[in-house]
Design a protein around this nucleic acid. Structure first.
Lengths: 119, 119
DNA sequence: TAGTTGTTCACCTTTGTAGAACATATTCAT
DNA sequence: ATGAATATGTTCTACAAAGGTGAACAACTA
């Protein structure tokens, strides 16, 4: 694709934005990734993915609550756009479609192979 | 991930290898991608993805049939390894898990938003 | 040799990764 | 009240890995 599809990490980040709702910002997304997958994600990685997603129109952001009793800089809250949602669904449907076409026997053969190797 | 996870395109290529069975080689994979998704894929892109996948141990390859009535160079046939299968399943399960956690209402709100925009 | 079918190669752009530097808010001692 | 300490987040800079292209090259048949 010429510069505006959904990368692997970008897709995970985008899904996190969706599931975190209005508590989606850099650090919370980083933490969510840590919890949900085993993978680590540096804070800079998350933000650069978010910036790219915004440039592509898949998320939008606004600066958070005017004030809290929290201390520290204001949050930048992200949300998924309609276009971002569409991209997620396209990606999901393609993969589902491919999975459904994998021949049963081929897959089972691999499973057997796996058992042999691990014994 | 530090150098051995499954990229977005790599995952698609890997799925294609699985569903093409013993007819999985560079050009057939390229054609399959063209058919199954709307996306175009240059032949070089496919091969470099395949090479990366092989380096990571997710596919293995052997040179094809000694001869045919076909004319042209021999095919390099790829197949998914047990490790590749595991990687595909991990990736699939993470995404399914994330999708299941997205709040219904949030998603429906986006759907509504989409309808408004397209009218 | 010419025609066919595939893979390699050289090169460039986009994504992924990391963490230090910087910014901005609250709180507490003076 | 004020400014240093503490807390919380985002930007910035640099580099590694993945994605992408097409021409060059290889190897087979007729």
């Amino acid at each position: 694709m010429k510069g505006s599809y959904l990368g692997e990490f970008e897709e995970i980040v985008l899904l996190m934005v969706a599931l975190l709702g209005d508590e989606a910002y850099g650090l919370s997304i980083r933490d969510a990734i840590l919890e949900q997958s085993q993978r680590t994600a540096a804070i800079g990685a998350v933000h650069s993915a978010l910036n790219r997603l915004e440039k592509k129109g898949f998320v939008e952001s606004k600066m958070g609550d005017a004030t809290g009793d929290r201390g520290g800089r204001r949050k930048r809250i992200f949300s998924v756009t309609a276009s971002g949602k569409a991209a997620l669904e396209r990606s999901r449907e393609l993969r589902n479609s491919l999975w459904n076409q994998i021949p049963e026997l081929y897959w089972k053969g691999l499973k057997l192979q796996g058992l042999l190797w691990s014994s």
